[in-house]
Design a protein around this nucleic acid. Structure first.
Length: 191
DNA sequence: CCCTGATTCGC
DNA sequence: GCGAATCAGG
């Protein structure tokens, strides 16, 4: 595969959207995340700044055959980045009565947190995390991506969380919290 | 262990 | 220019 104009364009787009290199690589196909990262650097957009802030050329002392590690870069990211994304879907962070449950609950994978009061904090965390979700499609899910559905499956804005699910669990940290909890709804039931 | 991006260097 | 190998960190 070669870096055609289209592919580079998609790369730029996704990168500026904050997508990870691996995701971009999967999307493009035929390339690894290393290739994506390498390309990103060659394009000079290693910084996620959408603008044209060029790197002021750091004094790169190379050519030393021995010094292999500790190049010490650590670029500081002072810009909080307000994220220009319009954020089309209304996530309704406030418990509005008109708004139905945060999790519509799809028929497929998700459990039903419903009939159980989950820690309000946990819910808040979920609402928060939804903003950071990768918005993956069904096909993009892997064994290690959070499979928590967000939005209404019947509508346009429906996606899967996609955040890294650590070990074995089908959900990310935040969603695991609300997914598995039906246990002990009854306080301690003495056997 | 899983993941992330960053850098190097032979091709 | 390209990207695998490697590094460094979460």
């Amino acid at each position: 595969m070669s870096w055609t104009d289209e592919r580079v364009e998609l790369l730029k787009k996704m990168w500026s959207e904050g997508q990870s290199a691996s995701q971009i690589a999967k999307e493009l196909g035929g390339v690894t995340r290393n290739a994506v990262i390498g390309k990103v650097h060659r394009l000079g957009l290693s910084n996620r700044s959408g603008g044209g802030a060029q790197q002021p050329a750091a004094a790169q002392t190379k050519a030393e055959p021995k010094a292999k590690a500790a190049p010490k870069r650590e670029a500081a990211a002072p810009a909080p980045e307000p994220k220009p994304e319009p954020a089309a879907q209304a996530a309704a962070p406030a418990p509005s009565p008109a708004r139905k449950a945060i999790i519509p609950a799809g028929q497929p994978l998700p459990p039903q947190p419903s009939a159980n009061e989950i820690s309000p904090e946990a819910l808040a965390k979920v609402s928060e995390i939804e903003k950071k979700s990768k918005k993956l499609t069904l096909m993009e899910l892997t064994e290690r991506t959070c499979k928590w559905p967000v939005g209404d499956p019947a509508t346009d804005d429906f996606w899967f969380c996609g955040l890294p699910a650590q070990n074995g669990k089908p959900y990310c940290e935040a969603h695991v919290g609300v997914a598995f909890q039906p246990m002990s709804s009854r306080r301690d039931r003495k056997r």
